Simulated assay, not measured.
Amino acid sequence: DLKETWGALDDIVMGGVSESSIRLTGTGALFSGNVSTANSGGFVSVRTRNFDPPMNLLGAAGIELRVKGDGKRYKFFLRCEDKWDGVGYSYSFDTVYNIWTTIRIPFKDLTPVFRAKVVENAQPFNPSQIYSYQLMLSKFEYNRELNPKFTPGFFQLEVESIKTYGSDQLPKFVLVSSAGVTRPGRPGLNLDEQPPAVKFNDQLKGLLNWKLKGEEVVRSSGINYTVIRPCGMTEQPGGQALIFDQGDNIKGIVSRDDIAELCIKVLEETQACNTTFEAKGDKENQASAEIWKKLFNSLEVDKNKSVVTV
């Protein structure tokens, strides 16, 4: 029942006079009311009761909203603790007047806030422990910055659905193979210029051939996967940026620490699903969020592969 799950939480708790409500319509739920800046107010919201037990959204990439708004900018919050007045993980989104819009909220883009102030040292967002959802219209964005699309008065936001997305588009299995697995027997290859594993593959009893067979088993399994082919791995400390390539041509070295971090990151990247790629260290750059994003966006899905829905 909607009224048993959602309830209004407006600026009246701080002396304001704004009012909101949520009710069922023929196409979903309507969050509406009047927002006022009188008495230093300026926000309205509806929030769920704490989920018991908390929701486990691990494996999803984010939340997808289907909404029809009034041209204003709203916020969506998720909370990872059962405190009523604790840190919330927020995402601001714009609406188009009287037009149905799909809003995707990536978990990795959520901002930890407490009473509209960014919490710099907050715990990482934990999708496996979601206690509540909240929709809000506020005159403030974050850290006292004003919402550029806020106007006092009547508002309405119709919500058709709130659901996760991406849970069927993430890798379920990560295989660490080797760069060079397709090179033994490749026509025109100069073995003197190749890494030892390629040069001495026969003496190693076809080690790279067996690794390639392992890749083929994973790719034909029906499981969403990522195959990582590191170049020569070293015991050097991690922290370098990486270079990705596809086609099994690059040579170089890479820290085992950086490959371990890569294995963790691909589990949260839809762009890495059903891909095979080589990786080596980038001597010129240190790892950063911007570089990681660029690397994953460069990947192409393996031929004749598609994401498997589970």
Results as ranks from 00 to 15, higher is better:
Thr226Leu: 13
Val227Ile: 15
Arg229Ala: 06
Phe244Gln: 05
Gln240Trp: 08
Ile223Ser: 05
Ala279His: 04
Gly238Phe: 01
Thr226Ile: 12
Ile253Val: 15
Arg219Gln: 11
Arg229Leu: 14
Pro237Lys: 14
Val218Lys: 04
Ile250Phe: 00
Arg219Ser: 05
Arg229Tyr: 08
Ser220Glu: 14
Ile264Ala: 13
Glu261Asn: 14
Asn274Val: 06
Cys273Asp: 02
Phe277Cys: 03
Ala287Tyr: 09
Lys251Asn: 13
Gly281Cys: 03
Ala260Trp: 07
Gln246Tyr: 08
Thr226Gly: 01
Asn274Phe: 11
Asn224Glu: 04
Gly239Glu: 10
Thr226His: 05
Glu268Cys: 12
Val266Asn: 00
Glu268Pro: 03
Asp248Cys: 11
Pro230Cys: 02
Thr234Asn: 06
Cys263Val: 10
Ser220Val: 14
Asp257Val: 14
Arg229Trp: 02
Phe277Thr: 06
Asn274Ser: 10
Ser220Trp: 07
Arg229Pro: 00
Gln246Trp: 07
Gly281His: 03
Glu261Cys: 10
Asp257Arg: 14
Asp257Gly: 10
Asp245Phe: 12
Ser255Asp: 06
Phe244Asn: 02
Ser220Cys: 08
Gln271Asn: 12
Gln240Glu: 11
Ser288Glu: 05
Leu262Tyr: 00
Cys231Pro: 00
Ile264Gln: 11
Met233Phe: 04
Cys231Asp: 07
Ile250Val: 12
Ala241Phe: 04
Thr226Ser: 09
Ala287Lys: 14
Asn285Met: 09
Ser221Glu: 00
Gly222Pro: 08
Gln246Gly: 05
Leu267Glu: 02
Asp258Pro: 01
Ile228Phe: 02
Lys283Ser: 15
Gly247Trp: 04
Gln246His: 09
Asp258His: 05
Cys231Ser: 11
Gly232Leu: 13
Thr226Trp: 05
Asn249Arg: 15
Ala279Met: 10
Gly252Pro: 01
Pro230Thr: 10
Val218His: 01
Ala279Gln: 02
Phe244Lys: 04
Ile250Asp: 01
Ile264Thr: 02
Ile250Glu: 07
Glu261Phe: 11
Ala287Pro: 00
Phe277Val: 03
Gly222Leu: 10
Cys231Leu: 13
Arg219Ile: 15
Glu268Phe: 11
Thr275Ala: 07
Gln246Thr: 04
Phe244Asp: 01
Ser255Asn: 08
Gly247Asn: 05
Glu284Gly: 09
Val254Lys: 05
Leu242Met: 14
Lys280Gly: 06
Ala279Tyr: 01
Phe277Tyr: 09
Ser255Ile: 10
Ile223Ala: 06
Tyr225Lys: 07
Asn249Cys: 14
Ala241His: 12
Ser221Val: 11
Lys283Ile: 09
Asn224His: 06
Asn249Phe: 15
Gln271Asp: 08
Lys280Asn: 03
Glu284Met: 15
Arg219Tyr: 01
Glu261Tyr: 07
Thr275Met: 04
Ile264Trp: 03
Cys231Met: 13
Asp248Ala: 06
Ile223Glu: 02
Gly238Val: 03
Met233Asn: 01
Tyr225Trp: 06
Val227Phe: 04
Thr275Val: 06
Lys265Val: 12
Asn274Met: 11
Gln246Asp: 06
Thr234Ser: 12
Cys263Pro: 06
Met233Tyr: 05
Ile223Gly: 00
Glu278Pro: 03
Glu278Lys: 07
Tyr225Ser: 05
Asn249Gly: 15
Asn274Glu: 12
Arg219Thr: 12
Gly238Thr: 05
Gly281Phe: 03
Gln240Tyr: 08
Gly281Trp: 01
Gln246Cys: 09
Ile264Glu: 09
Leu262Gly: 00
Thr226Phe: 05
Leu242Asn: 00
Gly252Cys: 08
Gln286Asn: 14
Val254Ile: 15
Ser221Asp: 01
